[in-house]
Amino acid sequence: MFKLQSTKNSGANSWIMQRISGIALVVLMIGHYILMHYHPDSGHTYDAVLGRMQYSWYRIIDLTFLSLGMYHGLNGIWGIFRDYNMKPWLKISVISALVIFGIAFTVWGYSIIFSIPYLKS
């Protein structure tokens, strides 16, 4: 019933995507760390967040960062699972759980970013 056609999916696409998203994340992550910590207020006050979020390009970077991080992380977890010999029902369950959790938390993150208002100047 749950027959996965593993021969058709070699995993090459997820392998190359893992490298591309990884390279992007190295840059984004270190930038994020410096930006959030160069001053104690920069990552911990509402005004700082509100100020950054006035720029749409910053929102786009944040959304990209979240999506890429979530994809890279969950694809990584799936990569660990793939090292083990799983029964088809377990494969389906693991993939479903990862996709559901991933989408739920990504949508949650998106909604948080979109909830921050644009100030009218």
């Binding site: 509402y46 991080g69 992380g73 990584g76 977890i77 660990i80 938390f105 948080i112 921050i116």
Partner: peptide, 18 residues
């Protein structure tokens, strides 16, 4: 890697007060 994806989930949760 597992620690970081765990932290990302936690991070979304902790910023939800925004």
């Amino acid at each position: 890697g597992l620690a970081l994806i765990g932290y990302l989930f936690l991070h979304v949760y902790s910023l939800s007060t925004l």
